[in-house]
Design a protein around this nucleic acid. Structure first.
Length: 697
DNA sequence: TTAGGGTTAG
């Protein structure tokens, strides 16, 4: 999906999105360029008019660099005030046009950065009343478009622009602009590349960022250490981040680059997030050996890596080493040490450290409490966790709702469903901050407690807050809707989930088909007979079955059988045929025959032939299906060509019709126009079969 | 005042 985003953007030109201003600015640009090209010396003389400095005049005419320095010197106050004017203006683009002749590219860059640094993404009149979903009409884009259109742009402008597009979460806009850069050398400028790669990484576009990096190298980019450290930063949260990171490290070393303290810091974080404490230790040692002194971040990351395996002795030793080196452990370091204890189930030590954090003033927010509570609850000490939660509230510790989230989830796991629901309600009363994890926890609590009203309310809230459901959300809802026998809602949710690119869990679907709610002990007869869900919605079930099939996974055999039986039973024979076509090996002979016999009554004459062929191949000695086929075509002579085709096909493969079908065909041969044709085919088959029998004996 | 990083919670 990410890759397609890249391709999509590649085909969109930057100018396509530019407003009616385009023609105006385009004309202006040409005029300005003409002026610059034809009368540079005049312009320089104009700027020098107030002075008699002949040395400046000389330097200005000698080379362009000289003229720039003169302009800078002479116009500084004017330029400064012009820059300030634009900064202060409520309509910066119109102000830009006013000062266009006075300012230079670097001045416009200063203006661009001013709006970027003050994070004024949406400070423009058009944006009022618009939601965050339409973030493109932001101040810096207008300024930037203007700069582009007027040719007041250089590598630094692009570099800054991409950085702000990253911060304002507009990686697509950044890509669009990047692909629209007309100057090829600018496109592989290392700063420009580093900046857009950073923008992508900051927005979770790890895969497409790496892909873009490869394209950039093909186009002539020479990556530097900043490039690699940018790419490495994306490895922290990426799947298989560590192996990608080692590839990148090899690559940078092959290019003759050496890692610095920044790169090592990133690597340590990657190791920690992948629970690779040996690798973290290795990089930590290597870094020291190369003469880089670890700082508090390096220590904290290694400490974090120790938490994965509860290596508390090593962790304590590291903290001592850190102190000995003259670095004081900070709030994060000690909280991380607390995490080491908690993950190692050393709850007494964690509690002691928590008291220490409280004394130091490092426990003003809920994080250390959260760590202990979560691990206590997961280790089966729910009561202890509740005590910490109560203690936290008593001390009026600042909460952002994480502790509620942890406790709600713990109560759900424990089966304390009403308590979980009450806490969820409590959360909603106290906090107005929702994110996906808390939403999922609240939904789970309401679903478990069977509170449909709250579930629906929550879903509306998600819509309002533009919180997109994830795989978990969908699964929580689907299970709940099924349990409540709200099958139609369940199917709608599954379709929605599929549309959003999430794969349905096969086991969950299997349970859905069984219709036995979500009991794991459904027996076979229940599966086939008590399926209210599926009997009510066989088409929907089939559409979900197709979702699973197209997700390129190998489905378990019983699922095909189950789907097939349901479709045959519901009379959806054409759909059943689709299942049978690719999975006849997974279907029982009995169900196939039942299907074929039902199918013979249908109007799908072409498919009837296909089914007969399949039966000839699978069950050569079966006579029922074939003779039913013959009867069906005799009753419908208009389709006689299809039957003739079948008979010829059998002859070619050496199959022979059974005697009763043979008699039936001969008796009705007149229906096929020319009696001879049938007689010839049958006698040919008969002759071949006698020959075969003789050969066998 | 061109671009990079890193530590703790659900």
């Amino acid at each position: 999906m990410e890759v397609s985003a890249v391709c999509l953007s590649a085909t969109t030109s930057a100018s396509a999105s530019v407003s009616p201003f385009l023609s105006f600015f385009g004309a202006r640009k040409i005029r300005e360029r003409g002026r610059t090209l034809t009368s540079l010396s005049v312009a320089v003389q104009e700027t020098q008019a107030p002075t008699t400095d002949s040395a400046a005049t000389t330097s200005s005419t000698s080379n362009s660099r000289g003229s720039l320095s003169v302009r800078t010197r002479f116009n500084s106050p004017v330029r400064r005030s012009s820059i300030d004017e634009v900064k202060a203006c409520s309509d910066p683009v119109s102000a830009l046009s006013r000062v266009e002749g006075v300012l230079q590219v670097q001045d416009f860059n200063i203006i661009l950065r001013h709006f970027g640094e003050s994070r004024r993404w949406s400070e423009i009149s058009q944006c009022i009343g618009l939601t965050n979903a339409i973030p493109l009409q932001t101040v810096e884009i207008h300024i930037f478009d203007w700069m582009q259109n007027c040719g007041k742009i250089n590598f630094a402008s692009y570099s800054s622009f991409f950085k702000y597009m990253g911060l304002s979460r507009n990686p697509n806009k950044a890509l669009e602009i990047y692909y629209g850069i007309p100057d090829k050398s600018l496109k592989v400028n290392v700063s420009v590349c580093n900046s857009i790669l950073g923008c992508m990484m900051a927005n979770g576009r790890f895969d497409s960022s790496l892909k873009l990096f490869e394209l950039m190298k093909d186009d002539g980019l020479s990556p530097d250490l900043v490039t690699y450290s940018t790419l490495l930063s994306g490895c922290i949260k990426a799947k298989h981040g560590y192996s990608k990171a080692t590839q990148l490290v090899k690559e940078l070393q092959n290019k003759g680059l050496s890692m610095d303290s920044v790169t090592y810091g990133t690597l340590l974080a990657i190791c920690a997030s992948n629970n690779l404490c040996n690798e973290a230790e290795m990089y930590f040692t290597q870094m020291k050996n190369e003469g880089h002194s670890p700082n508090v971040f390096h220590y904290s990351s290694l400490l974090n890596a120790y938490s994965g395996e509860g290596k508390y002795l090593k962790a304590e030793k590291l903290v001592n080493e850190m102190k000995a080196s003259g670095l004081a452990p900070n709030k994060v370091t000690l909280t991380t040490l607390l995490k080491v204890y908690a993950r190692g189930h050393l709850f007494e030590k964690s509690q002691e450290l928590l008291s220490e954090l409280e004394t130091l003033g490092y426990a003003a927010d809920e994080m250390p409490y959260c760590i202990i509570m979560d691990h206590l609850a997961k280790a089966g000490h729910l009561l202890e966790a509740k005590k910490i939660f109560a203690q936290m509230k008593e001390k009026d510790v600042k909460s952002d709702g994480y502790s509620y989230s942890i406790m709600i989830s713990a109560l759900c796991r424990d089966g304390s469903l009403n308590e979980a629901k009450e806490l969820a309600k409590d959360f909603e009363k106290k906090f107005d901050k929702y994110d996906l994890v808390i939403v999922n926890n609240l939904l789970r609590a309401y679903c478990n407690a069977g509170d449909l009203e709250s579930v629906m309310h929550m879903l509306k809230k998600m819509d309002g807050l533009s919180i997109n459901p994830d795989w978990n959300t969908f699964h929580i809802l689907i299970k709940y809707f099924c349990r409540e026998k709200l099958y139609h809602l369940a199917f709608k949710t599954i379709e929605d989930m599929n549309g959003k690119g999430h794969q349905l869990n096969e086991t969950l679907f299997s349970q859905l088909l069984s219709g036995g709610g979500f009991r794991s002990n459904c027996n076979k007869s229940e599966v086939l007979s008590c399926s209210p869900l599926v009997m009510g919605f066989p088409s929907e079930a089939f559409s979900i079955y197709n979702m699973l099939r197209y997700s390129k996974r190998t489905l378990c055999k019983s699922l095909h059988q189950r789907m097939f039986s349901i479709l045959v039973r519901a009379g959806l024979l054409k759909d059943a045929y689709v299942v049978m076509k690719d999975n006849s090996q997974s279907l029982s002979a009995k169900s196939l025959e039942k299907f074929a016999m039902s199918f013979m009554k249908s109007e799908y004459f072409g498919l009837i032939i296909c089914i007969s062929k399949l039966f000839v191949l699978l069950f050569p000695s079966d006579k029922d299906v074939f003779s039913t086929t013959v009867s069906r075509y005799i009753a419908t002579p208009a389709k006689k060509d299809l039957l003739l085709h079948l008979l010829k096909w059998m002859s070619v493969l050496g199959y022979c019709v059974d005697s009763s079908s043979r008699n039936l065909l001969l008796k009705n041969a007149h229906l096929f126009g020319n009696k001879q044709i049938i007689a010839e085919i049958l006698s040919k088959q008969h002759g071949m079969s006698r020959k075969n029998k003789t050969n066998k004996t």
